[in-house]
Simulated scan of single mutants.
Amino acid sequence: MTLKIGWIGCGVHATQMLLPQLVRHDVEIVALCDIDGNRLQSAGRQFGVQTLTNKAEDLINTPGIDAVGMAVGPDQHLAFGKMALERGLPVFMEKPPSGSAAGARELLAASEKSGKPLLVGFMKRYSAGNKIAANIVRSGQFGSVLGLTGYYMTAPGYFVGNVDYTGFFLHHCVHYMDLVSFLVSPVSKLTARKVEKEPGKVLFHINFDFECGAIGTVAMGTIQSRGAPVERLELMGDHQRIEVDNVIEVRWNRNPPFKVDDPQASLVDGVDSLTWKPNFTAAANEDPKGYHSLLADVIPALQGKQTPAPTIADGVIAMERLETLRRELDL
């Protein structure tokens, strides 16, 4: 059955990343909301929606909608999410689910009270390379993950005129507060240290201890250009290693023999390295970032089915870790 969705927030991210992937699934966008009239009208034309409003409450009360989606600010996620849940509607929202861990806990309580799911847009779990890495680990062929290393950067232009790292933490760092456990296990301890070249230009290293016994280090900061790849992950096992570059290139290093002096040297299945990267020359509407795959789990979850889609319970964990990180860094 086609899911009828009312959507709040028609900014660039929603209209260029989320909604185009949403409508590839069996959904109908029946109402849109944005406080900017021009953006609202443009989104209405783009997605063929006639019911348009600048009030979130009016959208949530639109007759006939089955669920509410939103991509707005953290405070609006909290207010509108609670409003929709109180009306008995399931919700999908972009991260972060609130501006604070306390707000995320409020949303979790509202979801539990209403009996309706609240799904959160942690699409890094679904980014092509990360998904492949997780599936290799879960296959049993990799063995135990012993270590995780990586980096995830953005640029200082994010803070022009306002050196406040709040947005960086809420919209950027929160991804890895969720992703590390998806790839390894729950975090038992988090510590961090930083260097700040000047206001707005910060680099910090986060150390993770995992409940499974693994350790991890992730470098994050605002000192790299967004015009270059700014993301890399590595999972270390016993004589195996998975490397994910730029979310779209994967190398699974296993335990190959030395080949230089072997006249019978070849490539042997089961021991030699495997690599993958997407074919961008193909005329296919693939989404390596992960939004389409995320929504493939979100939509049936909004209809009451059990799926692996990230929930507000995951959002609470990520937000609590994020606040621990900020305390560690005093930022």
Rank of each mutant, 00 (worst) to 15 (best):
Y151W: 01
H171F: 15
F210G: 11
H205I: 01
G167D: 07
Y152V: 00
H172D: 14
K197E: 00
F210V: 04
K197R: 03
K201L: 08
I206G: 02
M153V: 00
K189T: 05
H205Q: 01
Y158R: 13
D178E: 13
K197N: 03
T166Q: 12
G167C: 03
H205K: 05
E198D: 01
M177Q: 15
S188Q: 08
M153N: 07
D164H: 14
F159T: 02
T149H: 03
V137P: 13
H171M: 11
V163M: 08
F142A: 14
F169R: 02
Y176D: 15
V163T: 14
D209N: 13
V195M: 02
S144L: 12
F159G: 03
N162W: 00
T154N: 11
H172I: 09
V145Y: 11
S144C: 09
G140D: 13
L183A: 09
G143R: 10
L179P: 09
G140N: 11
T154S: 15
L190F: 06
L183F: 04
H172L: 13
Q141S: 15
I136A: 12
V195A: 04
L179D: 11
T166S: 15
C173Y: 06
Y176C: 09
D209I: 01
D178M: 11
Y176E: 15
C173A: 15
A134W: 06
L190N: 05
S185N: 07
G147I: 00
L146I: 03
P186H: 03
A134M: 06
G143E: 12
L203V: 03
G200L: 07
H175G: 11
E196G: 00
N135C: 07
L170I: 05
T166W: 02
P199A: 05
L203G: 05
L170Y: 09
R193V: 09
L146V: 00
P199M: 00
Y151C: 00
T149G: 01
L179N: 08
H172A: 11
P186D: 13
V180M: 10
I206Q: 05
S181N: 07
V180Y: 08
G140W: 10
H171N: 15
